[in-house]
Write a protein that binds this DNA or RNA. Structure first.
Lengths: 208, 208
DNA sequence: TGAGTTACTGACCGTTCGGTCAGTTGACTG
DNA sequence: CAGTCAACTGACCGAACGGTCAGTAACTCA
């Protein structure tokens, strides 16, 4: 503890940050294409334009790269979703905001979503990469909807169904739609898809 | 072609069939717990109570065991679903049959479903175990619903939404519900869950 | 009983791959 | 220009694992 902690980021910090981002971007691409098991660190290094050793200067293990990629995208998505959902008033708009945010984000971050959904699928077998706080983020998203529904119900917008259950239903509907897009089973515009999904969900839950 | 082909199964056939089944059952358990990549052939052999070499007397590769387990469960599930859906008349009943069959089957064949859903998730990254005919089976299930909806619509039961799209929605709703059960996020009875799901879907699509 | 046959075994092989570290590069300093 | 040091490299290591096959056990039948 000799000198003051520097206020400005040093050149070193900038470089480190750059490398972290660079490696993460490369990793996302490789993981999205081959899955966690199928991807090799050599491949990621090559994609990032560095030697394998360099990778390990910035991340302690392959798994950590994976988790970092997952977490980064996940928190961005969660933040954006929350912002959009909280930014509107009615339950109907909140549901639309939820669905639309996911679908748009999926279009812009296909690689991340591929990793995300593959991991969601594997949660069933290996009990979700332990400790990643992964399930929590997912459940938080559902809770977001759940709150909106409770609120909407108290205003007489929604009929009396278990809120958590309905929230899951909407989340599942959305997840399915996004998956279909990733696999290429959907071709229509996002706008139309949002319209259809929200309409369906709304008919299902509104108090007529 | 000297002798007549024997009508009765030889002792040998019985043994082979027994071993196949035994290995497949063991493999299902291991794959369900660890996923394809995480499972080792040694482990499967141990679970089946045979040596590793024996495994290769009955299946040519690890991947083939996996596919066999997948296919077996898949065709049984598809057959059962079709039977139930075709066994009732109205669209409402057909939807209930679809949902109920999946949920019940999931309860009775958890290991299979874990593999199945993990694979569904990985379809997004590795383009579905090539050639497994995997996507086809899934899409056939959706087509089952699609047909029912078209039919129901012509009878005035359902409002005018793209049938394929609605079919996907119901499939997604169901898949989500099953996943939740597998992960342990649902505790209610199957009956109640079927009720809720069908009700929701029905409200969403019926022509009031 | 023993010769022949079939089912099974598990040590072994080759490869892949995550992770390491001794060595190289090149920027900066005095 | 010599010396220092942090960033980077890639050959290397060891473990894990899919798959093989020479050898053994067990069963059949004369």
């Amino acid at each position: 503890m000799i000198s003051e902690t520097p206020q400005r980021r040093t050149k070193r910090d900038v470089l480190a940050e750059f490398r972290h981002a660079e490696i993460l971007a490369a990793a996302r691409g490789v993981f999205a294409e081959k899955g966690f098991a199928g991807a090799s660190v050599d491949e990621i290094a090559q994609a990032a334009g560095v030697a394998k050793g360099t990778i390990y200067l910035y991340y302690p293990s392959k798994r950590d790269i994976y988790l970092a990629a997952l977490r980064e995208g996940l928190s961005a998505l969660a933040a954006k979703t929350q912002e959009k959902v909280w930014g509107v008033e009615s339950l109907h708009d909140k549901i639309r905001a939820y669905v639309e945010t996911k679908l748009r984000y999926c279009d812009e971050h296909r690689d991340f979503f591929k990793i995300y959904f593959a991991e969601l699928g594997n949660m069933v077998t290996q009990h979700a990469t332990p400790d990643s706080g992964f399930e929590k983020v997912f459940l938080d998203q559902v809770a977001l909807l759940e709150d909106a529904i409770c609120q909407g119900r108290s205003l007489g917008d929604a009929r009396d169904l278990p809120a958590r259950y309905v929230a899951f239903a909407i989340a599942n509907l959305t997840r399915g739609a996004v998956t279909q897009r990733l696999v290429g089973w959907t071709e229509g515009s996002i706008e139309r898809e949002v319209e259809l999904l929200v309409d369906l969900a709304w008919k299902g839950i509104s108090s007529q």
